[in-house]
């Protein structure tokens, strides 16, 4: 393999990897505050892309994306308030079924509204053939947009959880809900907020990636599976782990193209998911003791 090809694959791997990482972090944020996996996570990404494409007819690009992200956040909040908030001690299985149901609902609604056309935002800078030379390889500036946006989101999120009181309260809720309540924290609001937050980051990733990956009403499912694989691989609830695992999966997928046909790309992700679930269900970076203590 030539150096150029290597860089080309690597860039593609990092691009997809950072998107997977964002979806996985979306899973983690909700998992940490509620203990459930929100299988509608991929739909947030789809909505972010689709809404910004539609809004682009009326607004300039940055505003269209901002409004699309805001709308998706409202949808996230609405989902939590309507379907989840009022449940008293819901079982894990019930929650999973609810979120799967919601993902189907959103997907079918999207099919109804936007049809099954493949769409995309225009490239933020230049067009399909604009490229920046990097060590002999040619990389689209949009790739840098995706990587930078995802990187920035990860940094902002970690700052948010570390250095703001709302972030600290969310971590407190995740660590020990009873004690958090007795510190005067309204945990129900924290759960709503976690849905808003993961809808927001999913939507932003969905908008930024759409020029390269294209978007369609049903991309959510595939992304949810990849994101779930990454979340498990990195250890559920562990966001630095999700970044590492996301990049790992993205890069493995990208390089696999040089060995096996493109059509097998998804099979690789699912094979990894199965192996991890059998061999190390607490993930590559999670510790088995903490996994054992969490409620499944």
């Amino acid at each position: 393999m030539t150096l150029e090809l290597f860089i080309q694959y690597l860039a593609a791997g990092i691009t997809y990897g950072s998107i997977y990482a964002i979806v996985a972090i979306g899973f983690n944020i909700i998992y940490n505050t509620t203990g459930i996996i929100n299988f509608a996570q991929g739909e947030f990404v789809m909505l972010g892309g689709m809404l910004s494409i539609t809004l682009l007819d009326f607004l300039p690009l940055p505003l269209a994306i901002a409004l699309a992200v805001a709308l998706t956040m409202c949808i996230g909040a609405a989902i939590e308030i309507v379907f989840i908030r009022w449940l008293k001690n819901p079982g894990v299985l019930r929650m999973i079924i609810i979120t799967i149901g919601l993902s189907i609902l959103i997907r079918e609604a999207a099919l109804h509204i936007w049809g099954d056309n493949v769409r995309a935002l225009p490239y933020f800078i230049g067009n399909e053939i604009t490229s920046i030379p990097v060590l002999g390889a040619r990389i689209s500036p949009q790739v840098l947009w995706v990587i930078a946006t995802c990187g920035l989101m990860v940094i902002c999120l970690s700052l948010f959880f570390k250095a703001t009181s709302v972030g600290r309260e969310m971590r407190a809720c995740a660590a020990n809900r009873t004690a958090a309540i007795l510190c005067g924290i309204d945990t129900k609001n924290m759960v709503t907020f976690s849905f808003i937050l993961s809808a927001g980051i999913g939507a932003l990733a969905g908008a930024v990636m759409s020029p390269i990956t294209y978007t369609q009403y049903d991309i959510g499912t595939g992304l949810a599976i990849k994101g779930f694989t990454v979340a498990i691989l990195g250890g559920l609830g562990n966001s630095p782990g999700a970044v590492a695992a996301g990049l790992l999966l993205g890069i493995i997928e990208a390089f696999s193209v040089s060995i096996v046909p493109l059509a097998f790309q998804d099979a690789i992700a699912i094979a990894i998911l199965l192996v991890i679930l059998f061999v190390r269900p607490h993930g590559l970076f999670g510790s088995s003791t903490t996994a054992g203590l969490k409620e499944y």
Partner: peptide
């Protein structure tokens, strides 16, 4: 406070107390 201590795991002693300042 509780009979069996309920700390916020993964947070420092200071952060634990800071959460209490929430109110």
């Amino acid at each position: 406070t509780f009979q069996n201590i309920k700390m916020f795991a993964g947070m420092t002693a200071l952060e634990n107390v800071m959460v209490g300042r929430h109110v």
